[in-house]
């Protein structure tokens, strides 16, 4: 029983991370219909910036705020300089640009901070005593913080889309950019905002994840795959779906990886992806994605 709970919690912890990153992917997709393969690397880069800040004596919380700000700037610049000039319909070109960005960011971080893993401080103290007990297992404060923040960010984003004028404008622009322009919506700005939002989410995630996994240049890559799987499973236009799917993938992967010995650690990712495939065959738009219905 203890093992089950431990595995569940482990799975949820991972799931929170997947959900966070999936949320960022969905933000970009919802506003501009693109998949930003560099999302993880941008988050990682922000984490490194936060690290540099802590090295300079800045308190951890402020360093995280700096990371978020860096994310916003990065997101805005990337959209303006690399994506907008291509025109938002150039799917392959933009995919390639995000790939180039991925490679360049990864390598740049390696140059600036070296290839060795770095230790990033946690927000709350994380000694051996710093946990809360849940059903006999331990949940560290940092992990709890991550989960709470994820819920908060998700709620904020959902509220934005559903209840605000800006959210309505974003949904209009995604659904029909030309009509949006004819209604006075500045579509370019909306696109930029989508990228900035996504980068901010990533910038928040990076420094929070780093302590648990040590800060390296390749930490985000596996997470990106899981996050992409989660976004697909949940439905690419559903922020709530993406987060929920992230949690599901995290838990299932942990449970199946633990209990089904055939799987072992190598195939854990494969489990997530097979699950994804099965769900998609039944619901091609993901669990919560909206099926686009249009009368022709």
């Amino acid at each position: 029983m203890d093992l089950l709970v431990a595995r569940l919690i482990d799975g949820l912890n991972n799931g929170v991370i997947y959900g966070f990153l999936a949320l960022a992917l969905v933000c970009v997709y919802r506003s501009t219909k693109h998949l930003n393969l560099a999302q993880g690397e941008m988050a990682m880069f922000c984490a490194f910036i936060a690290y540099a800040a802590t090295q300079a004596g800045v308190p951890v919380v402020f360093a995280i705020v700096i990371a978020i700000a860096a994310g916003v700037i990065m997101g805005g610049v990337v959209e303006r300089v690399l994506v907008r000039p291509l025109g938002h319909d150039a799917d392959y070109s933009i995919l390639l640009v995000t790939i180039g960005l991925f490679l360049a960011l990864n390598a740049t971080a390696g140059i600036i901070w070296g290839g060795e893993p770095l230790a990033f401080p946690t927000v709350f103290s994380s000694g051996a005593e710093d946990y809360i007990g849940v059903l006999g297992s331990r949940v560290r404060y940092q992990q709890l913080l991550l989960a709470v923040l994820l819920a908060a960010v998700l709620a904020a984003i959902l509220a934005l889309f559903k209840y605000t004028k800006l959210g309505l404008a974003m949904r209009t622009a995604t659904s029909n950019p030309e009509s949006a322009a004819l209604l006075g919506i500045r579509v370019n700005r909306i696109n930029a905002l989508g990228w900035m939002m996504a980068a901010a989410v990533g910038g928040l995630l990076g420094p929070l994840v780093a302590p648990g996994t040590t800060l390296t240049t390749y930490m985000m890559f596996t997470f990106l795959i899981y996050a992409a799987a989660a976004a697909t499973l949940g439905g690419f236009d559903s922020p709530g779906g993406a987060v929920l799917a992230g949690l599901i993938i995290g838990v299932l992967e942990s449970l199946i990886g633990g209990y089904v010995s055939f799987v072992g650690s190598d195939l854990k990712l494969a489990v997530a992806l097979v699950l994804l495939l099965i769900v998609l065959m039944v619901r091609p738009s993901g669990l919560f994605g909206s099926r686009r219905v249009e009368r022709v």
Binding site: A169, N176, G184, R292
Partner: peptide
């Protein structure tokens, strides 16, 4: 304001949201 050719309906929004979007400015 323009009513575009083909009506330019914003398909993913509800009817009421379409009207609300119209008042964006």
């Amino acid at each position: 304001a323009q009513v575009p050719q083909g009506r330019g309906t914003i398909a993913d929004l509800t009817v009421e949201e379409n009207l609300r979007a119209g008042a964006h400015v």
